[in-house]
Design a protein around this nucleic acid. Structure first.
Lengths: 123, 123
DNA sequence: ACCATTGGTACCCATTGGGTACCATCACCG
DNA sequence: CGGTGATGGTACCCAATGGGTACCAATGGT
């Protein structure tokens, strides 16, 4: 097992997203992802159930949503709480780190919406 | 052929990255991508040749770099200029739109570098 | 004659993104 | 007492595609 701390220590030029071996690269890959950006943004409104997120993120399949949320949970951006009820209830919420990550992601999302008219047409 | 303008018009709730059919979704997918974010950031320093970009974006393969740059060019974020020389010289530079897009992406990159220590270890 | 340089492309492969079908459980209704 | 609905997934399967390596074209320099 390789912890993030260990990888940072063994990284000759730490904290540089342009270095292939730097864990920053992995974190950028995690955040610079369509579904991650949308999921974190949705959770800014407060804790959400799986079904609510699925509705909000139009077009996402349950499998992909699960993958996305679990990955965010693994890295400490999202908290997952299961309630022992029937039918099952699972609530996802932002951790402090996740809430902080929302700031730059929100900028990115709103930049896209504000500038969509300026894009060229795809070939 | 479907232009962005046409797709925007036919989109019931325009300019919403959460709508599956909105072109904003595609643009978010374009920008919320590891290599796009790194390539645009590299070009902030001024026009760069293919080889320089390849060196800067450690770990990128030529094929993937080409794909990334061409896609950015298709959507009007990057300008590609070929000089009729031997050996060939190709310079990539930011368009005005690309330069604007760099702002939120730079925030994202620097946020990652500043907060890397706070991430949990991956499972 | 031969090599180095540059910006790719051709080809191939494994990973994985992604979709659909299905499940387990219990409350509730008839 | 059987049927139905709600919920949060997982199992399974597949095409796409991300990605790597090998190679090329063209010419100036030695």
């Amino acid at each position: 097992m390789t912890t993030i701390a260990a990888r940072l220590a063994s990284c000759t030029d730490p904290k540089d997203v342009y270095a292939a071996a730097c864990p920053c690269r992995d974190m950028l890959d995690l955040l610079a992802n369509k579904w991650s950006a949308l999921a974190l943004g949705a959770l800014e409104d407060g804790p959400q159930r799986f079904g609510a997120l699925r509705t909000r993120l139009q077009g996402v399949s349950p499998k992909v949503l699960t993958q996305t949320l679990r990955r965010l949970e693994d890295y400490g951006l999202v908290h997952r709480e299961v309630f022992a009820e029937v039918p099952p209830r699972v609530e996802y919420s932002l951790t402090d780190l996740g809430a902080d990550a929302c700031v730059p992601l929100a900028h990115l999302r709103s930049w896209v919406e504000l500038n969509i008219d300026r894009f060229s047409e795809a070939s």
